[in-house]
Amino acid sequence: MRSNPIYKRERTVGSRSIRIPMILTVFNCILALAALLNMYSMVAQVEVTAEIQYSAFLELYVFGAVIAFVMILFVMPALTAGSISGERERQTLDLLLSTQVTGLEVAAGKLMAAMHHVILLFVSSFPVMAMSFVYGGIRLWDLAFLVLSFLVAALFTACIGICFSALCRRTTMATALSYGMLALFVAGTYGINQFIWSMANVENVSYVNQIGGMGGQVNSGGFLYLLLLNPAVTFYEIIRGQLGRQETMASVGQWFGGRPDNPILGAWVPVSLVLQVLLAGVFLAAAVWCLSPGLPKGRRSRREKGPGAAK
């Protein structure tokens, strides 16, 4: 099987860049600092109370997972938003596309390079994350499931970045739109539910005042299922399930007014992971479409004013 030349080149160039070592260093420094402080506070507590707080190790696990997840959300668009627009700015995209490399290979190569960096990030954090196994509470399966959710979140955010990178001429614009789209999925879906639920509550209160009796339970309706596309909610559900804190962490089904159980709410994490992978595929397909030469006139004319006119 022919290896992807774009991925090979990105690996070579990436290995000579300071960017990835810097990200790894910062990420692992934060994790290591958290672990050290956690261990120190626990030992100090043992000295005073002679009791070991085993839950503190789980907090370390949660803290590490949150840091890793936030890093993915922040790092992936930055890594991918300039991947294709950067080629365009460097005037190397035409050289690439004039070869037998297809638009799909370009987009896939960029995606593989970004995922390569994320996997490196996870693997490098394993020693610190493994500290949570010292006193138990987290199974290997839990960790594997968490890594799977990270990979899906990374794929999702990377595909958003690649899509806008293929669509925009400038990296700054691609980066802004990538973060904007991500914010729409993470904060926007939550905000929409909050808004709809608030409106429903207002209507309910006025109705109750009119009839002077008891109002029924209101919720945000079908808008809740928009949260299936929110990687942060998926991550929350995974952590909630692993910690088993039913009383302090409400399930998504209880959010925005609550609702009776149904098959989607029951299989929230797998459904949301599958949907996010599918949506990532749509973003990647859009990027490939932008890189194909058979682009309709209007789209291309907005992106380029025409090579002849440029001279």
Partner: peptide, 17 residues
Amino acid sequence: KGLVGYVPDSFGIYDNL
């Protein structure tokens, strides 16, 4: 694309290659 070689008017280079 296998039959044609292309030298553009302005072309970019890759850093670190």
